[in-house]
Design a protein around this nucleic acid. Structure first.
Lengths: 257, 257
DNA sequence: CGCGACGTTGACCTACCTCAATTGGCGTGG
DNA sequence: CCACGCCAATTGAGGTAGGTCAACGTCGCG
């Protein structure tokens, strides 16, 4: 369950941690795995952070709610990704976290997280790197919701999810997991469930995507990317190699390049 | 010019850096000050980060643009705040940065930034803390644009700007700087300039705000906060005291509390 | 077989957009 | 001191993308 990260962050860790570090990390995740049913809250806004959480399988969603119930999905956490660094930063969490569908998460308590960080000297840097990329994604979601129309928004989100799972731009077509219902897709894009439905049909009619069995099929990625005006820069899919040394420079004051 | 931070981040640094550290920081800022005219680009999407930038006076705006020109303001950088940590994280910047109005920024090159970080052992942690709060603000902007209607959006943004300048919730009324034109306000909220105009008028008629001479007057903050359903949690205005030790725990693996 | 979760459809509505002037304040040059 | 030009705010009229409400269809599962 914890071994099969097909997703970027897990791969980065695998590549950039030493073998001993990787094993300690994996062991810690496995030891602390916990399941959540679809829609269950894992963290609620205002709570004190209690664990370092990493998604093992399934998707988690960060969301916020207005007092009257309007809800916005803010981010998706895919397998292999840490949910946040709240344990090491804030006094109280400013958003909620729940399960998109059946979900397995590792919940590493403060003690164990501390010893894990001591065992893996590069881990903290990689976690920071992950937060930086997450922030970049949040910016893209902001312009997505603020400026794009319905079809562009949905197309953009699909491109992102595809790219995050594959880790690199793909030529031609491909497929990937897609665990959101149309209702959740609506909450993520600031649209209505009804309108998302019509928009997805439109994308289907244009043969840009096909959605079936929790899988997203993209016959021609360039076509979909064109609809969305998708630009993968913000995912920083390259540059991960130098992530550790860059963040290290921040904390050690080393000059480079 | 660099001495008068009325804004949170500058105050935090002042409080949490030692006196010698603070002086080194201030000196570095003063030495690298640079002016920009209204609307000028400081950084363009896709460039390689070349400096650690800190706003000294005026406001900077992060923005992104779609190929056809639609533009979204993603964030505002107020005096005393660092613009980003791109110098220590990414290979290429994923958004642009420009001057809201006449602006003074310190631009600290890699060499000097490195030596500054070595002189101020807590600086890196504080910069990280700033990034975390910035990310939280980005999340709030996402739900603001995704779920709130026009009057709520504008009210929310005004509440945020007020709170960020005052650092603490205020009872009763107050005033603060407000350097955005209605057009920029529109780009920040995902609305139209015309509609922002009508919305601001509505707020004025309800005696919730008054905008004059680049100042925002709020007769009763609770009133405005009520319109926006504003909740200042996401600004993490408390918890700054423990910011350094928290982030330190991440990088040293120390367990606490 | 019946229930619950999702997806789909239709009819109608409205918040916000678009386009196109017009107004007002202010700095600058004559 | 006035005239001009620029920039931001304002106004009006008309249009539309997307929302709302209320069914209905479909599929999987207990």
């Amino acid at each position: 369950m914890t071994g099969a990260y097909s997703v970027t962050f897990g791969r980065i860790l695998n590549r950039l941690l030493s073998s001993a570090e990787w094993m300690a990390w994996e062991a810690s995740l496995a030891r602390n795995a916990r399941d959540y049913a679809k829609g269950t809250d894992i963290v609620r806004e205002g709570e004190r952070p209690a664990a370092l959480r990493v998604v093992l399988s399934g998707w988690a969603q960060k969301y916020k709610q207005l007092p009257d119930g309007r809800r916005q999905i803010l981010a998706l956490v895919l397998p292999g990704q840490p949910c946040d660094l709240d344990l090491f930063t804030v006094g109280r969490t400013d958003h909620s976290l729940s399960a998109v569908r059946r979900l397995t998460v590792a919940e590493i308590g403060r003690q164990e997280a501390g010893s894990l960080l001591r065992q893996c000297p590069n881990l903290a840097q990689l976690l920071c790197w992950g937060e930086i990329v997450t922030a970049a994604i949040q910016r893209e979601w902001t312009i997505n919701i603020g400026q794009r129309n319905a079809i562009e928004r949905v197309a953009q989100l699909m491109c992102e999810i595809f790219a995050r799972q594959h880790g690199i731009p793909v030529s031609g077509g491909g497929e990937c997991d897609f665990l959101l219902t149309q209702g959740q897709l609506a909450e993520a894009t600031g649209l209505t469930q009804v309108h998302v439905n019509r928009t997805v049909q439109q994308l289907r009619r244009r043969c840009a995507v096909e959605l079936r069995n929790l899988r997203l099929f993209i016959p021609d990625f360039a076509e979909l990317a064109g609809i969305a005006a998708f630009n993968a820069n913000y995912l920083h899919l390259d540059g991960t190699d130098r992530a550790v040394e860059r963040v290290t420079a921040l904390f050690r004051g080393i000059e480079r390049d």
